[in-house]
């Protein structure tokens, strides 16, 4: 497939190539981890969810240029959506994914008119405000959401009716890996589509866009909706693979965390963001088993490094390295 050939992408303007030769390495590492760390598949699955969530937020911030401090709302809605559906007896995992995507897309659709308009600052406040409203609503609706205790009393049927979710988490990992691959491919496609070009246009010169007849607000609303739907898929996957849905999945900490993850990975760079999310998940797990305080300290250092030393994050490093390699 020519889609997998980075050279075929050369037509789109150069900076911030969304598809990079690093992509095969990412998937090779993910597949290798299945064989190399069979005892850590639960962690690996959580990291895949984080990678999906990061890609969904990158579509919003990196490609559409919309900052949000409430993106975890869509992760949480996806998690609750699939968990609640499973509690009602609809335990098919793919149905759960579809439900997670739909409910998040629906809420994004409702919110988009207020998020799309306004400056970065108003967007931060609005998304923050909406997120805390939804968090509180989920907390109050105990019958539906389990309140502070969350939801754990649901089943997940075998995938495609064939592959049961085993105790070692093998099915869960391979399931998450497949969904990640699909999301990765989908994002690559979206960002190299006519729609993706329009998003680049908005970031490059939002003033010129209406002067060429562009429905800027609609473009932004569509990317908000797509981004919400993908986060919803991630949330559903999280609930299904961890057998748990809880308030923290739509909380502020997750929303803030994903902004950091995407900054570290390099906004607008799909491969960089994926690697950034994986690195973040690994380091967080390693440091927080030592001490939560180390984690906070490490996080601070890594973030400052990514802002001051490596502009453009990991994606920026990949691009610079790639250019260096081509010259040599």
């Amino acid at each position: 497939m020519s889609a997998l050939n980075p050279a075929s992408h050369g037509g789109l303007s150069k900076p911030a190539l969304p598809f990079s030769p690093v992509t095969p390495l990412i998937f090779a590492a993910l597949i290798a981890s299945y064989f190399l760390f069979p005892n850590h598949l639960a962690l690996a699955t959580q990291i895949l969810v984080l990678m999906i969530f990061a890609l969904s937020y990158d579509l919003l911030q990196g490609h559409a240029g919309i900052v949000s401090l409430g993106h975890a709302v869509f992760l949480g809605l996806g998690a609750y959506g699939s968990a609640i559906l499973a509690r009602w007896g609809f335990t098919d995992p793919l149905l759960g994914l579809a439900a997670g995507a739909s409910i998040s897309a629906l809420v994004a659709l409702v919110l988009s008119p207020i998020v799309v308009r306004g400056s970065d600052f108003t967007r931060l406040l609005v998304t923050l405000g909406v997120a805390s409203l939804i968090h509180e609503a989920a907390n109050r609706m105990r019958d539906l959401t389990g309140g502070a205790d969350g939801l754990a009393d649901f089943e997940v049927a075998p995938l495609l009716g064939l592959f049961a979710f085993d105790f070692e988490g093998r099915t869960a990992f391979l399931y998450a890996l497949t969904v990640f691959a699909l999301v990765y491919a989908a994002l690559w496609r979206v960002t190299t589509s006519p729609f993706g070009l329009a998003l680049r246009g908005i970031r490059e010169n939002s003033r010129r866009m209406p002067a060429i007849g562009s429905p800027v607000a609609r473009h932004l609303a569509v990317s908000y909706l797509l981004s919400g739907a993908i986060a919803g898929v991630g949330g559903a996957l999280l609930a299904q693979t961890s057998r748990f849905a809880s308030l923290d999945m739509l909380g502020f900490e997750r929303s803030a965390e994903i902004v950091m993850v995407v900054t570290l990975g390099g906004t607008g760079h799909i491969a960089g963001v994926s690697i950034g999310a994986a690195a973040f998940g690994l380091v967080k797990d390693a440091l927080s088993t030592v001490s939560p305080r180390y984690w906070q300290l490490g996080l601070g250092v890594v973030l400052m490094a990514s802002v001051f030393l490596a502009r453009g994050g990991i994606g920026g490093l990949i691009e610079r390295f790639g250019r260096f390699g081509r010259r040599a």
Binding site: A3, G11, L12, R189, V190, T192, S193, P194, F195, G196, L197, A198, M209, I212, G213, S214, H219, V222, L226
Partner: peptide, 13 residues
Amino acid sequence: ERNRRTAVFWRSV
């Protein structure tokens, strides 16, 4: 944008 083709996100530009 004039063609109103920028709604297309599933095909390569």
